[in-house]
């Protein structure tokens, strides 16, 4: 399923400046609205693919994007101290993983991943960047040659996690039943 390709391509980069964050969570809100079906028809920050880690009393404000799904927790956790503030390793982790309920759809439990607001026609900037009026999030496109692992699309990621959770047989059976019912 996964193949390596070398291509010259535009890399989309969201730069995060945590010092500029004002903690308003507009990024979470618009992300959930953009990915609603139909688009903008609902809001629910628990479904956002960006999450603001906010610890007001330690002055920690870190917008974090949902990365890849992982089906296993890490072995052992490191702890970092930066400027006298203590963070555990998970603080910066972008994965949707079994050890916590971040970046999972609260209804289905399926993993969520930032897709840079993929749209047709494409948006000028991902919506979270547009909503961030304090410039904690900025957007850049960088031209570069890279060896890239083509990632499975969103539906496949979801299916893979279902297969991992319930086994191929059960998922196949459910699919067959659902498609029959749909007919």
């Amino acid at each position: 399923m996964v193949e390596d390709v070398i291509e010259k391509k535009t890399v989309k980069v969201i730069k995060v400046d945590v010092d500029k964050c004002i903690g308003c969570r507009a990024c979470e809100l618009v992300c959930s609205a953009f990915h609603a079906e139909p688009k903008y028809s609902s809001t629910n920050p628990a479904k956002a693919r960006i999450r603001l880690i906010m610890d007001e009393f330690n002055d920690i404000y870190i917008p974090l994007y949902a990365g890849e799904y992982t089906d296993a927790e890490c072995n052992g956790r490191n702890v970092y101290t930066i400027d006298g503030k203590t963070y555990d390793e998970c603080t910066f982790c972008r994965a949707s993983c079994p050890s916590r309920d971040f970046f999972k759809d609260p209804d289905s439990g399926l993993p969520l991943k930032c897709d840079m607001c993929l749209d047709d026609p494409p948006l000028e900037e991902p919506l979270c960047v547009q909503a961030c009026r304090c410039d904690a999030l900025t957007y850049e496109e960088v031209e570069q040659e890279e060896e890239k692992e083509e990632s499975p699309d969103e539906m496949e990621t979801g299916l893979q996690s279902l297969v991992k959770k319930h086994g191929t047989k059960k998922v196949m059976e459910s699919l067959a039943r659902i498609s029959k019912e749909a007919d």
Partner: peptide
């Protein structure tokens, strides 16, 4: 809370 708030005419 982790539920949706719906908008009647989203666009």
């Amino acid at each position: 809370g982790k539920k949706d708030i719906n908008i009647a005419r989203p666009g």
